[in-house]
Write a protein that binds this DNA or RNA. Structure first.
Lengths: 231, 231
DNA sequence: TGTACATCAGTGAACGCGCGTTCACTGATGTAC
DNA sequence: TGTACATCAGTGAACGCGCGTTCACTGATGTAC
């Protein structure tokens, strides 16, 4: 691994440089405006040279998407790791803020991951492992909270209808060993988290919500209560 | 109004035809790929002729955005109007499904309104009145429910911190005459609604949630419980 | 250790395409008297 | 009611631009013997 040839080292270095530049272009032009020629120009290369590194524009996009999911996933993992294991409410809130902070710091990457699909682009399956890293952290928190009997939803609410059992079974691969009711409360809170971040980032709160961090925090506490995480 | 000149009638007709075609292109190319030349081609016009109707590409986009908000707003208004006035839970759920149904029927228009911002495009203030039509319906439901004493959040949850009072005051222009706590529960449910629809539309549920309508319905019932709408 | 050959990175030209916008123009429609 | 003028819709050519991708090529780096 370390005893690589010079060529290999240069290649790895340049590949990283290409994605870095592409990421920066993403931030000014958006996904649709990502252009191989522009990246090549900034690399000081002729446009066709990029094809030595990425066989097409879509492959470059895929690399950016995977990198993005990994960066977000890592931020979330580290945020959770910094919390006391049995402070489940704290872990949930910390994870929420980690997602929001990362999104605010990388708005166009966030848009690439969670915004409108790029027209004509079809994400390959390779993105999946990276895409679920954040969700796995959340699932672990829920699962551990459940087993520590720290989940006590007080709000009366209908149980999930039976037709949802097979979906619950799939989600259980991410939130293991919890009843269906917990699954769907978790799923709801999880979508609310991303719903908030998307609203904030995509401008829906403009001229309305100004104290965004505080409002977000409060909203996620309401979701915690909905899940039954003790206040 | 009706005694318009022939020219005026033709002009209105062609303007509508242009937006119709543009809307169709949106559905295949996405917002970034919307092209005046392509629209002109389909109109059987020379490309420069479009400029008699829209001074620039951005103005055409703005027209599409306003039309989209109005269409969604109207769908939501009509859905609510079909419910018994005092069935607040029913009205909430109906509105939720109206939003989701409209989004599923018009995915690219939904993406234009609630997805990633179009790079380089800045929405003018003209879009605001149309953009809040759906929210106003929701606000009315919450407000009427509150005054009918039909809101009883059982779940213990922290009250909104005082720093959120000024934001609450702004939101109160849409959800009138309700306490801050209700404001932020409503806001949270509202973002959860759009968060779900965006997740579903933008592919985040692929290979995970299959019984989408049922799961959505259940999730929105959880949000109703969070808001304290009687089950 | 030295040489012959294979691999690979980057070049430069080209293909074929589409875009938004401007401008001087023709000819039809509408308006004022 | 008829004519003279003003308004307006649509034309066609042009400007200047950028894009993804292919291909035959040179020259440097790596490998096998």
């Amino acid at each position: 691994m370390t005893a690589r040839t010079a060529r290999e080292r240069v290649r790895a270095e340049l590949t990283r440089e290409i994605t870095d530049i592409a990421r920066r272009h993403l931030a000014t032009e958006g996904a649709g405006g990502l252009s191989l020629r522009a990246v090549a120009r900034e690399m000081g290369m002729v446009s066709s040279a990029i094809y030595r590194y990425f066989p097409s524009r879509d492959d470059l996009l895929t690399a950016l998407i995977i990198d993005g999911y990994n960066a977000l996933g890592e931020a979330v993992e580290q945020a959770d790791a910094g919390c006391p294991r049995d402070d489940f409410l704290g872990r949930w809130l910390t994870v929420c803020h980690a997602v929001r902070d990362w999104a605010l710091a990388h708005p166009h990457e966030y848009a690439l991951l969670y915004g409108s699909p790029v027209p004509g682009y079809q994400a390959p399956q390779d993105t999946v492992p990276a895409a679920v890293r954040d969700t796995i952290v959340f699932g672990r928190i829920m699962s551990e909270a459940h087993h520590a009997s720290a989940l006590a939803p007080a709000q009366p609410a209908p149980p999930p209808p039976p037709s949802l059992q097979s979906d619950a079974a799939i989600v259980r691969s991410i939130i293991p060993d919890v009843p269906d009711d917990v699954i769907f409360r978790g799923l709801t809170a999880w979508t609310a988290l991303y719903g908030w971040v998307s609203f904030e980032l995509f401008g829906q709160f403009n001229n309305t919500i100004e104290e965004r961090r505080t409002a977000f925090d409060h909203s996620m506490r309401l979701m915690a209560a909905m899940m039954g995480l003790a206040q």
